[in-house]
């Protein structure tokens, strides 16, 4: 057996792990799991909050659109009534004017 073989054998020799090796590995695994679950939970909460906020904004926008549409319809009705009354006034004035012209003609 030469020096090289001796070094190789020494290097590949079975070594026993320290007594608390298994416990340490298990502890680290648990820690990583907890940390990972923790971040996923926050991510889910953030997603939920974002969903709720965007949902609320969407509903508010829809309500605002409905409200604007209703105001528009009401305004159009009111303006049509005003227009029709203005036309009535014009017609009435024209009728009065014609009556006066007729009376002047008779006189």
């Amino acid at each position: 057996m030469n020096q090289f073989e001796r070094d190789l054998r020494e290097s590949l020799r079975r070594r026993e792990p320290p007594a608390d090796f298994a416990a340490k590995v298990l502890a680290r695994t648990r820690d990583t799991e907890v940390r990972s679950v923790f971040s996923w939970r926050w991510l889910a909460v953030a997603a939920l909050v974002a969903l709720m906020v965007s949902g609320t904004l969407f509903i508010q926008k829809q309500q605002q659109q409905v409200e604007n549409e209703r105001s528009k319809e009401q305004l159009m009705v009111a303006l049509r009534i005003t227009g029709s009354k203005m036309k009535d006034v014009q017609d009435r004035l024209n009728a009065i004017q014609q009556r006066m012209v007729r009376l002047q003609g008779i006189q």
């Binding site: 009705v77 009111a78 303006l79 049509r80 009534i81 005003t82 227009g83 029709s84 009354k85 203005m86």
Partner: peptide
């Protein structure tokens, strides 16, 4: 019908409403 328009400066603006289609 009672209508109160605040800011109406010209009667012809309202007369133009008569051109709108009937209710």
């Amino acid at each position: 019908v009672v209508m109160n328009g605040v800011g109406v400066t010209n009667l012809s603006d309202l007369t133009a409403l008569g051109k709108m289609n009937a209710l």
